[in-house]
């Protein structure tokens, strides 16, 4: 086993009955990495996570973890932890008993068990809540119990399903820090599933963007945010102006603009609204919508290329609704896309 493929999925095909949710997935995850599976609902990210956990049978392909093929290993023997989106705490057990649940099944008893549970609770700051029932805790506290319950088992991989989505903004930041700290202290390999790009960018070492059961792009948060490779990823991370290139040329009302020197092999180009400049430039459009956003002003332009979204400094002179305005799509700022779908 090489460290680069501590957890590896090989030609993994997952299906619900006859409908294939994930076809032929290949993915390698390093030991100690913090990975985000990012994508819209229905992209197969949760399905993939459930297959890694062993909750969903694999149709074909392999899951290897720490050198062993675990494709057919039942979920209760995998040493994979999962923090559920709903936390899934046992309502009839106290916080202490929840954390002790898995350890007791391992046969741990007495002082050893107590020490382990106490340290688990301490690590998430809930020592004083040991005797409470889950229903008496806030959402954030419940999640930390769920985290402690999984972590005391010392899983080889910890999976988290939408770990921040049920929390309010303040707790979200707190939990994000908490997850990073736990990961750093224990070195556990973490994979979390999310549909929120901000969450993935903030937390992950590497992001795996998925669409329709397939991996669209794998990269660092910077890669994904700045250098999306496909129109889907570009759209997902906020490039709202995305255009196909036809033989290196961008089609406009004034004819084709040759961009082959800037983006020789690109299938398309994408600009964030922030990258569009207004007032000067070779293109023209009509202001169809405008809104003030504090530091900036957002415009929706009707152009021969289709609608264009622009966001410019609020200090610049405003353009009225209906007025004609010239604009530029600076080719050097654009993200070149290798796939346009």
């Amino acid at each position: 086993m090489s460290d680069a493929s501590y957890l590896s999925l090989r030609k993994l095909t997952l299906a619900y009955g006859d409908s294939v949710a994930v076809p032929d997935l290949d993915l390698d995850i390093r030991r100690g990495e913090l990975i985000a599976l990012l994508g819209p609902s229905g992209c197969g990210k949760t399905t993939t996570m459930r297959a890694i956990a062993g909750l969903l049978p694999v149709k074909s392909g392999h899951v290897r973890l720490d050198g062993a093929d675990i494709t057919r290993v039942p979920a209760n023997k995998r040493a994979v932890g999962l923090v559920f989106q709903s936390y899934a705490l046992f309502p009839h057990l106290s916080v202490y008993e929840n954390v002790a649940f898995g350890l007791k099944l391992k046969g741990m008893r007495g002082a050893e068990l107590d020490a382990k549970v106490q340290s688990g609770l301490k690590s998430v700051g809930l020592s004083s809540f040991a005797n409470r029932k889950p229903a008496e805790l806030s959402g954030g506290q419940q999640q930390r119990v769920a985290l402690a319950r999984s972590m005391v088992m010392e899983p080889k991989v910890l999976l988290l399903d939408e770990p921040l989505s049920n929390l309010d903004a303040r707790l979200r930041l707190e939990m994000r820090t908490e997850l990073q700290r736990v990961q750093k202290e224990t070195g556990v390999t973490m994979i979390f599933v999310t549909h929120d790009q901000a969450e993935a960018l903030a937390l992950a070492d590497r992001i795996v963007v998925m669409k329709s059961g397939k991996i669209e792009q794998i990269g660092s948060p910077e890669d994904i945010y700045n250098r999306p490779l496909s129109s889907f990823v570009a759209d997902f991370v906020g490039f709202e102006n995305i255009f196909p290139l036809v033989e290196g040329k961008l089609k406009t009302s004034g004819g084709l603009v040759d961009l082959s020197s800037q983006a020789p092999s690109a299938a398309g180009l994408a600009w964030r609204p922030r990258m569009v400049t207004l007032g000067t430039g070779p293109f023209r459009g009509t202001v169809r919508g405008t809104s003030f956003a504090g530091d900036s002003r957002e415009y929706l332009l009707d152009t021969s290329m289709g609608p264009i979204k622009a966001e410019v400094e609020a200090s610049l002179p405003a353009h009225a609704m209906g007025s004609d305005v010239s604009f530029n799509l600076p080719a050097e700022k654009a993200a070149p896309l290798s796939r346009f779908a």
Binding site: A75, N76, G81, F84, A88, A146
Partner: peptide, 16 residues
């Protein structure tokens, strides 16, 4: 009224 994911949670903690 009982969430079914607690059973999966129990399984992942080592229970049959």
């Amino acid at each position: 009224n009982l969430r079914s994911d607690i059973e999966e949670a129990a399984v992942l903690l080592g229970s049959s």
